[in-house]
């Protein structure tokens, strides 16, 4: 199925959003069987499935002649447009919650602007996704409040923010082809959306009993060191893509093309 949705800029924006969801999903799925409790394990699996489903909704707009598997699986790192934040390896549960919070806050804002946008089919899908994202936000916020209950929790959460805030700098740093069309796409400049996101993030961190350095916060609002939105990814994405491509699949498997 192929849906033509107007302009290249729209397609490029949706591709970036789809890649975010696809890559974020892989990271959540790494928690299966190793979550902090079995109940939470199930929640993380559920979020992983949500994100895969969201990616599919956007990829379906862009498929043209390519299959879902080809577009999801068989693209090289430099062809991907996800933020480097979501490709980052989760080395600790604190990473998961901080990424969950930073990314889903940004995503919620982007989706809300798309819901209000002129393209009806996109608005409808954005709205479907937004409903599930509310749960993801609730998940992040509940855990932030609970993880700061011990000194170790505060320490780990602070470290995660220090490491991940700089990696969230590319969340709104789309290619000029997209940002030039911001009025048509989302009704407001992407910079303004970034400012809103930054304000929410800053206020939330401020409300937590942890000290995050001004440097890390400033980095989140500065030009990104790695910009995934223009294909400038970190080694984490290569590692992730390597991990999803098994080498010993029979040749007629959808995902076997990556190594061919």
């Amino acid at each position: 199925m192929s849906v033509h949705c107007g302009s290249d800029a729209v397609e490029q924006l949706l591709l970036a959003l789809a890649d975010d969801e696809f890559v974020a999903s892989q990271r959540y799925a790494e928690w299966v069987t190793v979550g902090p409790t079995m109940e939470e394990d199930n929640v993380l699996s559920s979020i992983a499935q949500d994100e895969m489903g969201h990616a599919r909704l956007w990829y379906e707009f862009l498929e043209d002649d390519q299959s879902l598997d080809a577009i999801g699986y068989n693209r090289r790192p430099d062809e991907r447009r996800n933020s480097v934040l979501v490709e980052t390896e989760h080395t600790d549960f604190a990473d998961t919650i901080v990424i969950n919070f930073l990314y889903d806050t940004a995503e919620q804002q982007l989706l809300e602007t798309l819901c209000a946008g002129a393209h009806e089919a996109i608005a409808r899908r954005a709205n479907t996704i937004l409903t599930e994202e509310i749960f993801h936000r609730e998940h992040a916020e509940q855990w932030l409040a609970r993880l700061v209950s011990t000194a170790e929790g505060r320490h780990r959460l602070r470290n995660a923010f220090e490491r991940l805030l700089p990696r969230s700098a590319d969340l709104f740093s789309f290619e000029p082809a997209i940002t030039n069309q911001s009025a048509e796409l989302i009704g407001i400049p992407f910079d303004e959306l970034r400012d809103q996101w930054f304000k929410t993030v800053d206020e939330t961190i401020d409300s937590l009993p942890i000290e995050v350095s001004d440097g890390a916060l400033a980095a989140a609002g500065s030009p990104p060191e790695h910009n995934g939105r223009t294909g400038g990814h970190t080694a984490d994405l290569t590692q992730l893509l390597d991990s999803i491509h098994a080498e010993n699949l029979p040749k007629d498997h959808p995902a076997s093309g990556y190594h061919a």
Partner: peptide, 15 residues
């Protein structure tokens, strides 16, 4: 789970 060979298979395996 990471290596499941298609979109559908991966979703089914996670589920």
């Amino acid at each position: 789970i990471p290596r499941a060979p298609s979109y559908q298979r991966k979703l089914a395996l996670i589920a």
